[in-house]
Amino acid sequence: MSVRAQNLRKSYGKTQVVRDLSLDIAPGEMVALLGPSGCGKTTTLRMIAGLNRLDGGTLYIGDRLVDDGRTFIAPEKRALGMVFQSYAIWPHKSVAENVAYPLERKGLAKPAVETSVLRALDLVRLTAMRDRMPHQLSGGQLQRVALARALVREPEVLLLDEPLSNLDAALREELRAEIAALRSRVRTTMVYVTHDQSEALALANRIAVMNLGVIEQLASPQAVYDDPATPFVASFVGGANILRGFVEAGHFVSHETRFALPAGMTAKGGPGTLVVRAEDLEVGMLGTPLPLAARLFLGHATEYRFALGGTSLRAMGPHLPLAEPRVAIKRAKLFAPTV
């Protein structure tokens, strides 16, 4: 089922948390809402769920208008599945009772509930835990109960709010793979909120990069990574360096330092913002001399940090025993000046 959001707005008091946000999600698609903490991801998801009402805009789920400020369909009538950031597993109900609850609300008969619960628990590999109480489960298992409960009614749209953020690194990777595998088994539309770019890149069909309540770019993972629409997207998704300065005769000048623009890059003179990813900065004997602040050996590569007018410039490359390495820009993208 599709989700169509047009010009959504939401304020808490005087602060605008979501500003004019539009998002079109095709049936069966998985879209990740990616952005830093506090940018309005949860608020957006909660508006889709019906847990927050819109201040403005229109929201369709499938062909049904669910909220436009006047018409409002209550969350329980939207038939969505949702996984909460805190999991929200009811501590007074066993695993099976938690998962059975949505079916009971639907008014299903007992045998039908049983079989559906078993199927859902099987899907998340928790059949053995069906009679445990929540406090007897680990974080990863709780997360899977939340997933099973959200999926058991076979919702057409599944909303996930940072489902992996409370887990440790190893478990996070395992469950990420599991969600990816799940995608091939259940064809529901998914909206997946995260602030972790690797989750978004690995799982989503498209990524909506959010900042300060607006979507700065909505594109495939590849496009977001390779062709960021704004300096913010480049720095948030690729961890790119953002240089403010101006273009002058094939060079970019920032913090009174001149960098040669890569060959083949044509740029008009004048102020601008240059975005350079760490791996697109070549460290070696050629290029601009800069004081080296730190050299971090990471195993697969070495990170260099150069001092540049009070900030630092990150470069990634092979380990070089040079005393005074220089940097050259291999690839970059120039934006109009930002404030």
Binding site: A49, L51, Y101, R105
Partner: peptide, 9 residues
């Protein structure tokens, strides 16, 4: 809210 999402008023 999880109960609401599960279909409870």
């Amino acid at each position: 809210e999880a109960a609401r999402m599960s279909g409870a008023g």
